[in-house]
Amino acid sequence: MRDAGPTRRAVLGTVTAATIAVTVAGCDDGGGGSDQGRRKAGIDDAARERAYATTGALLAGYEAAAARNAALAEPLRPLSAELRAHLAAFAGRGTPSAPPAVPGPAEPAVAGGALADRAQQVSDERLIGLADVSPELARRLASTAACLAGHAQLIRSAP
C-alpha cells in the first residue's frame, strides 16, 4: 500500500517548474537605463509586498486552524515556522502587516483540505511574473512557491 505523502513525481514536477522559472527569470539582464531600473525596483517592491501579504495571510490561516483543530496543530507547527522564515525573507521597507485570518471550517479534514488548496493556490500565483522581477527575487519567489507546493502535499497527507 502506498504512503499518503507526496509522490516523487509531484515533488519532481514542482521542483522542475520552479527551476525552469528561475532559469527564465535569470536570463533577464535587469535593464540598462535608470528609468528602467526604477521601474524594475518598483515591480520588485510590489511583488515582495504581495508575497509578504499572502504569506502572512496563509500563516494566520495555519495558526487559526491549529488553534481550532488539535489534530492539525502538530502537522502545522513546522510549516508555520517555515512561513515565518518566508515572512522574514520578504520583509522590507514599508511592508504591510499581515491580514487577520478568516475563520475556517471546524472539522480537521475540511480545514486541512482548505489550507492545502490555499497553499497550492499561493504557490501557483507566486510563479506568475517571475520574468518581470530581479533574478534574486525570482529565485526567492520560486523557492518559496516550491515550499508551498510541498506544504499542500504534506497537509493533504496529514492524518
Score class of each variant (00 low, 15 high):
20 I>W: 12
100 P>D: 06
126 R>W: 11
130 L>R: 12
25 A>V: 10
68 R>S: 15
21 A>R: 03
21 A>V: 09
121 Q>L: 11
123 S>R: 06
7 T>H: 14
45 D>R: 08
110 V>D: 13
5 G>V: 09
82 E>C: 03
116 A>Q: 05
127 L>R: 13
96 P>G: 10
139 R>C: 14
133 V>P: 04
73 A>M: 01
65 A>S: 11
150 G>P: 13
27 C>I: 13
82 E>R: 13
17 A>E: 14
77 R>Y: 04
22 V>R: 12
132 D>M: 11
116 A>I: 11
120 Q>V: 01
61 G>E: 02
152 A>Q: 13
84 R>A: 08
101 A>W: 01
44 D>F: 02
140 R>T: 11
126 R>F: 07
144 T>Q: 10
62 Y>F: 15
64 A>C: 01
154 L>N: 10
140 R>M: 03
100 P>E: 06
36 Q>Y: 10
9 R>N: 05
109 A>N: 03
147 C>Q: 15
153 Q>W: 14
134 S>W: 00
127 L>T: 11
44 D>I: 00
55 T>S: 09
154 L>D: 13
105 P>E: 06
44 D>H: 02
36 Q>N: 12
146 A>R: 09
37 G>D: 12
69 N>K: 00
107 E>F: 06
65 A>V: 00
146 A>Y: 13
89 A>F: 01
118 R>A: 06
75 P>E: 01
36 Q>D: 15
12 L>F: 14
134 S>L: 02
138 A>H: 03
39 R>N: 11
